[in-house]
Amino acid sequence: MSQAKLFILCSPHNPIGRVWEREELDQMARIAAKHQVFVISDEIHCDFTFGSKHTVFSEVARLHQIPHLIAFSASKTFSLAGLCLASIVVEEADHRDRFRKQARIDGVHTHSTFGFAAAEVAYTQCDDWYQAMLSYVYENYLELKAFVRQEMPDVTVFDLEGTYLAWLGFSSVCGDHEELERCMIDQCLYLDEGHIFGREGQGFERINLACPRRVLLAALKRLKIVYDLLKEGQKG
């Protein structure tokens, strides 16, 4: 950390689904302050929390007077990614000026008129839809968890504190992540392979819960076929 200049924080964490506790964020801020590291906090999943409170990193960053940037968007919560909108909050004036200058150089200073309008409506007129969506996503998680417990007991389902993405562990079923992917593709299952998040992710899969329940259940039936094939392979 002593040679680091930048720390990129994912909060809530993707793909694990953790919502960082305030004490954990405070410890991160202390370390960043000690080593004079700039922090970028990606909080695009901040609207997706289930029983845990999301703490904006600025709350602890201010206490330790560390330079930081907060990034978030309505695009995940309200499925508006096609309108190209995002928000960047830079509290320190000098860093904000530097950011704006670099954005102009990189040609990303233009704005989406439709994106502005959509974000305003999403944040001011869609609370009922938002609450219903949160409940639906979490019910999907419970469906997945119950299915895995009943049909695929050797697969690990990580607790979902935040995001709409479930993290599944297959290391007890298959030690070869390439074989795991071959079996997935054979069943026309295209989940996010854990290894794309780094070597430590091998043997894991990420599945999107923000979908109609019938789609999720159909995918789980295919996943059960993959599981049975892998278990049969263990016997051989």
Score class of each variant (00 low, 15 high):
2 S>C: 09
3 Q>H: 14
3 Q>Y: 14
5 K>V: 14
7 F>K: 10
8 I>W: 03
14 N>W: 10
14 N>H: 05
21 E>A: 13
22 R>K: 15
23 E>S: 12
26 D>P: 02
29 A>H: 09
29 A>V: 14
29 A>L: 15
30 R>K: 15
31 I>Y: 13
32 A>H: 14
33 A>G: 15
34 K>T: 12
34 K>I: 05
35 H>K: 12
37 V>S: 13
37 V>K: 14
40 I>K: 03
42 D>Y: 06
42 D>Q: 06
45 H>E: 12
47 D>W: 04
48 F>N: 08
48 F>Y: 07
48 F>K: 03
49 T>R: 03
65 Q>V: 12
68 H>L: 14
70 I>E: 07
72 F>H: 12
73 S>N: 10
75 S>G: 07
76 K>H: 10
76 K>M: 09
77 T>K: 10
78 F>H: 03
79 S>V: 11
79 S>L: 10
82 G>H: 15
82 G>F: 11
84 C>Y: 14
84 C>R: 15
85 L>Y: 15
90 V>W: 08
90 V>S: 07
91 E>F: 07
92 E>G: 13
93 A>F: 08
94 D>C: 10
96 R>I: 05
98 R>W: 10
101 K>L: 13
104 R>P: 02
106 D>W: 10
107 G>T: 09
109 H>N: 11
109 H>T: 01
111 H>W: 11
112 S>K: 08
113 T>K: 14
114 F>P: 02
118 A>Q: 00
121 V>C: 09
121 V>P: 02
126 C>E: 15
129 W>R: 11
134 L>A: 02
138 Y>V: 05
140 N>S: 04
140 N>D: 02
142 L>M: 13
144 L>A: 07
145 K>M: 07
147 F>A: 11
153 P>A: 01
153 P>I: 04
154 D>G: 04
154 D>I: 00
158 F>N: 04
160 L>K: 01
161 E>G: 05
165 L>T: 03
167 W>T: 04
169 G>I: 03
171 S>Q: 13
171 S>H: 08
174 C>E: 08
174 C>M: 02
180 L>W: 06
184 M>T: 05
184 M>H: 02
185 I>G: 00
186 D>S: 13
188 C>W: 11
192 D>P: 04
193 E>A: 15
193 E>D: 12
194 G>L: 09
198 G>A: 08
199 R>S: 10
199 R>D: 10
201 G>T: 06
206 R>L: 06
209 L>M: 08
211 C>P: 01
211 C>M: 15
212 P>E: 11
213 R>Y: 01
222 R>W: 00
224 K>I: 01
226 V>D: 01
230 L>G: 03
230 L>W: 07
235 K>E: 05
235 K>P: 02
